[in-house]
Simulated assay, not measured.
Amino acid sequence: MSDALKVEDGRAPWDPVAGAEKGEVLDFYNIPRSGLLHANGLTYFFDCILGDGGSSGAWAYAHVDDTEMLNLLNAVGPAEYRAAAAAAITDRWVTVAAVAEYKIIESATFDAGSEGALGLSERLVKHWDRIMATRQDLRELVSATPH
């Protein structure tokens, strides 16, 4: 997990960590929806994986090597780009962030397989469901414990 990007709550999803150097924007529609950034000596791919770049959605961040970076930069046409983007969030540690009002509000890092963008978004929701269930269990334990 050492190459996973730790994003910061409250930041714009296309600028998720202080001090990151902005790289090439690969998809722009009102905001940068997909692109590259450089942080901690590594290159990361970022992509709006749910919500099409609106004020709310889910974003993915994954370390890419030089070959993957070139595949993203040199993709010709939508199909080739989608294939390169999908490969960039497959079989590696991927940080998935929830965004509201164009700000990161929560994130989690997953060991991604081949589940793709929707699968990663579903994993984030399931992660929150487990947190909510655990929170409720803890509330009940606190209530049942004599003070």
Rank of each mutant, 00 (worst) to 15 (best):
G113R: 11
E115V: 11
E106N: 12
T109F: 03
A85W: 11
D47T: 03
A62M: 08
A98M: 12
E115H: 05
A88T: 03
A60E: 05
N30W: 10
G116F: 04
N40Q: 14
M132I: 12
L50P: 00
D47N: 15
G51L: 05
M69A: 15
T43Y: 07
P32R: 03
E106I: 01
A108M: 07
H38I: 12
F45N: 12
C48E: 03
A88H: 03
G19Y: 07
D15F: 12
A87G: 02
P16G: 01
A117T: 05
G113H: 08
S121Y: 12
L42D: 08
L72W: 01
P16M: 01
T95K: 07
I104K: 05
A133C: 00
L73C: 12
V94Q: 07
G41H: 11
I131A: 13
A58S: 11
M132T: 08
A18L: 06
A58N: 13
V76K: 10
G23F: 11
E101F: 09
V96N: 10
A133I: 06
A58F: 15
W93F: 14
A133W: 03
L124I: 01
M69S: 13
G113L: 09
F28M: 05
A87Q: 07
R82D: 15
G77Y: 07
V96P: 11
L70W: 11
T90P: 02
H38M: 07
E106K: 09
L118Y: 10
G119T: 06
H63D: 07
Y102C: 01
T43E: 09
S114F: 06
